[in-house]
Design a protein around this nucleic acid. Sequence first.
DNA 1: ACCGTACTGGACCGCTGGTCCAGTTGTCCA
DNA 2: TGGACAACTGGACCAGCGGTCCAGTACGGT
Lengths: 210, 210
Amino acid sequence: MTPERGERADAARNRRAILAATEELLATLGPEQVSMERIAAAAGVGKGTVFHRFGSRNGLFLALMQERAYALEDAVRTAPPPLGPGAPPRERLLAFVTAIATVVGRNKGLMAALGIAITSTSAAPASTPSGACHPDTPPGERPVYDFWHSHTSELLAAGRPDLDADLLAHILLGALQSEPILRLLREGAQDRLAAALRTVAASLLDGPPP
Amino acid sequence: MTPERGERADAARNRRAILAATEELLATLGPEQVSMERIAAAAGVGKGTVFHRFGSRNGLFLALMQERAYALEDAVRTAPPPLGPGAPPRERLLAFVTAIATVVGRNKGLMAALGIAITSTSAAPASTPSGACHPDTPPGERPVYDFWHSHTSELLAAGRPDLDADLLAHILLGALQSEPILRLLREGAQDRLAAALRTVAASLLDGPPP
DNA sequence: ACCGTACTGGACCGCTGGTCCAGTTGTCCA
DNA sequence: TGGACAACTGGACCAGCGGTCCAGTACGGT
């Protein structure tokens, strides 16, 4: 996606190959079966290359997720209403939640893999090679989730300042990593999920003050 | 908890020691740091014993969760309203959701550990030794979650037959394994979580038909 | 054409979840 | 009380994992 100034041509090619291989393996194999060695083999590169590029297993999955979610983030910032700026919070939230369901539905395997992202034992590599920044998990930073959360939280708060928007947004988004829901998604329940998320969002915005 | 007819005295003692050790380690160390070997050492038994008794890592965590959640399951079936039978669905659901927040708040580490429960590579041991049944994860069976889900779903459906109670219950419960929420819980947000869950439940029950 | 360096890949490491089985010990019956 | 049998025990063992390392390669500016 980003040619990344100064990135060598072969490096870029390999990066794309690794991301593509990861995506394909995740789509067919379940995250536990997808080892770094397998990804490297499928991409036709060595294991060391994968780690050099993405820092860790989580870093790889995170980078892939960022790429998959970029279009949505962009749309939220620049697209016409109701997804983009301009519409009232209620409409924007319903549109956003629907869009999220689509993204998640297209990347079930990735979501499952990201669910397992709790710790990273080792520190990030000392020096950042080339100009590129490692998407390794720096403490407390998960770009995609953070954006989704803050956007949801803000819209919720805009519509209902009396609610605990922060925590409610976590609840809404927590569903997206829950194993039972990912299973339903695998069985094709994407529209059902979108509708349910819309129901929750609408109920919260319309509901009575507690 | 259950003396389990036919279970040998030393076996029972070891089982309790293992569960206690697991709980203590999970309370202080974060699920990634808690290995089976460590649990065995902390309990003063061999690794083989742990596996013989609980089948797998997941089996062990599941057994511990079942024990921790038993009191709640019992209360739901036999306690006086509003938690037990007899109260209107709305009150029961709010009480249940509050009780769940308490249980989860007391077992954050366990919840985090159970979040990572996707696959089991090997089959269960061929024959069930002694009379006891292995609490190994048989496909699609997670006793505690299943009970929580069906109860939530039924109460939701009783109050609002027009909603997708099944999926909405998954959303409500999905929050309990989400990493950001478990972090907030670690910072003492248990009451906040309970309140937020009540808000969602109440909004769903009171909200307008979509 | 050349040179410095970013990039590469596979051998290597510590550790994990899980298996196995020879030896031990509780329990039941005579 | 004692003997016999099965359930239980525990630690050596295994394959495979995520992650590290560094000698060698080949890209791209000049």
